[in-house]
Amino acid sequence: MREIVFSAIYQYDFNEDVETSSDYLERELSFFSMEDEMKLRTRKYFESILKYRSDIDEVIRKHLMNWTFERLASIDKNVLRLGAYEIIYEPQIPIEVTLNESIDIAKKYGSEQGGKFVNGVLDRIARECASTEKKHL
């Protein structure tokens, strides 16, 4: 589910066309056998990340160390968007799950160093932005 969301927001990053990116998301969903509930959750993540994109980007900017948002590779930027969204807006997902999944996606589509970078940024975001309840999941 997260990989499909990642690929759709990555697609949006290049064309900034919601309709094209939504069509891409639906095509990707058609390739996988998923329960309807998981498909709905995938769409919700995608739509919410686009809705809160500027807020999410601002959170990421604040937690970058010795780096600027504009210099981020698109893969890392979109993995961070997905991870930050989940940390801030999905209270039932444990932080460790978000970190592990985000690192795996960053390594799979980027580099080993990207995984370490994503881990560091998301860890800082989690420490500062995650709810108290979420920190105790």
Rank of each mutant, 00 (worst) to 15 (best):
R2T: 09
V5F: 02
F6G: 01
S7D: 09
S7F: 01
I9K: 05
I9L: 03
Q11P: 02
D13L: 03
F14Q: 13
F14K: 15
N15A: 02
D17C: 11
E19D: 09
S21I: 08
Y24M: 00
E28S: 13
E28Y: 06
L29A: 07
S30M: 00
F31K: 11
F31Y: 13
F32N: 05
S33E: 14
E35G: 00
E37N: 05
K39P: 02
T42C: 00
R43L: 00
K44I: 05
F46C: 01
E47Q: 11
E47G: 05
S48R: 05
S48H: 08
Y52R: 14
Y52W: 11
Y52V: 10
D55W: 04
D55L: 10
I56Y: 09
E58N: 11
E58Y: 07
I60S: 07
R61P: 02
K62F: 11
H63V: 04
H63W: 03
H63Q: 03
L64W: 01
M65Y: 13
M65W: 10
N66G: 09
W67R: 13
W67C: 12
T68Y: 01
T68M: 01
F69Y: 14
F69C: 01
E70Y: 01
R71K: 14
A73F: 08
A73R: 15
I75G: 09
I75E: 12
I75K: 11
K77T: 08
N78G: 04
V79K: 00
L80Y: 08
A84N: 01
I87R: 04
I87A: 13
I88Q: 10
Y89P: 08
E90S: 13
E90P: 02
E90R: 14
E90L: 10
P91K: 10
I93C: 12
P94Y: 06
I95P: 04
E96K: 07
E96H: 05
V97I: 13
T98D: 06
T98Y: 04
N100I: 14
N100E: 15
E101I: 14
E101S: 12
S102Y: 07
I103R: 07
I105F: 06
I105G: 06
K107W: 13
K107C: 14
K108F: 12
G110A: 03
E112T: 10
E112P: 00
E112H: 05
E112S: 07
Q113Y: 11
Q113M: 12
G115E: 02
F117R: 09
F117A: 11
N119R: 15
V121A: 14
L122T: 04
R124K: 15
I125S: 08
